[in-house]
Design a protein around this nucleic acid. Sequence first.
DNA 1: TTTACTGTACCGACCAGACGGTACATGAGG
DNA 2: CCTCATGTACCGTCTGGTCGGTACAGTAAA
Lengths: 175, 175
Amino acid sequence: MSTREKIIDSAMSIVRDQGVGKLTLDEAAKVAGVSKGGVLYHFKSKDDLIRGMVQRLIDQCDQLQQDYYQREPAGPYRWARTLVRTSFDPNGPASDPVGGALLAAVTINPDLMAPIHAMYERGMERLKSDSPDFERAVLICTAMDGVYFQRLMGLAPRDSEVSERLMHHALGLLH
Amino acid sequence: MSTREKIIDSAMSIVRDQGVGKLTLDEAAKVAGVSKGGVLYHFKSKDDLIRGMVQRLIDQCDQLQQDYYQREPAGPYRWARTLVRTSFDPNGPASDPVGGALLAAVTINPDLMAPIHAMYERGMERLKSDSPDFERAVLICTAMDGVYFQRLMGLAPRDSEVSERLMHHALGLLH
DNA sequence: TTTACTGTACCGACCAGACGGTACATGAGG
DNA sequence: CCTCATGTACCGTCTGGTCGGTACAGTAAA
């Protein structure tokens, strides 16, 4: 793995394990096994590092959504169903490791959220394109944001069985 | 209004207007119109200030929920319906001003989230007590978390008409 | 094949400013 | 005169960012 990627990974794990407040260039360097100079060679500022984290998050989301979309049977609400399944993917960004990028961005410099806004817009367009009842789709997908939120805040560490049932209930409302 | 309350208000507004990263004792003092010594008289540390913010948030939520609960007609899903209406209250904590307390807490010291966890537990108990289909209630209320999340992240600044329809759709699923 | 040069990747010392927190002074009201 | 509420001055630490330097790989002329 490239050093650059390793640094992003390290930053993500710091946010997850120690909280956003502990994300410093020194700490990221230490965890990644390089010097602070090394970090600043790949990212010209802390904001730039966070931009990298956000981009990573977006790429991962896009990838996962594409994968699930292909596997999802065609028909109404295909995109909504895709988003539901993506949200519960145990390896997806909705699970613990990478989500902190958002927290880092919104707390350190809200401007860094711009790419996320764009991703949201894309998602809305997709929903609109194949949802017979758009409001229904928005509501369910908003619930998926809620799932994400709860994980970010460390609320309700749902066991996988409860998650499973919640997911199926959501899917059941998309018919 | 007491100085203590004024300081909490100031801290809230800093988080909202400038981001969590800009919440410092000096800045809070400046905005509240007192000196740093004054702030530290009322809150013996920054963590303590954030505790105060979190407590304010919780008190406001509790108050609002009680109000709406009383106004909500009895019957199944009464608590779920209450939570939905609370989430869309234009003066409630779900709107912009006070939400940042959560961000401040989770980024600066995750331990400060403990009272929020407790509030969540209470909410779940209430839902369980009067929801014929508990999963349905949880799903809808998770969507309310999503609404909150989107506001925190500055995503989708929904106009009030869209909010209105989303709320009614949520209520429609609670029958 | 040696030499000279260039670009990439990274290191580590350093700095200026900001921050949380402490210690103490001040001053008004009872 | 004492306590409550607040102001002032200061300290030690941490942080983002700069800068000069190093190691090394490629490469191209001599």
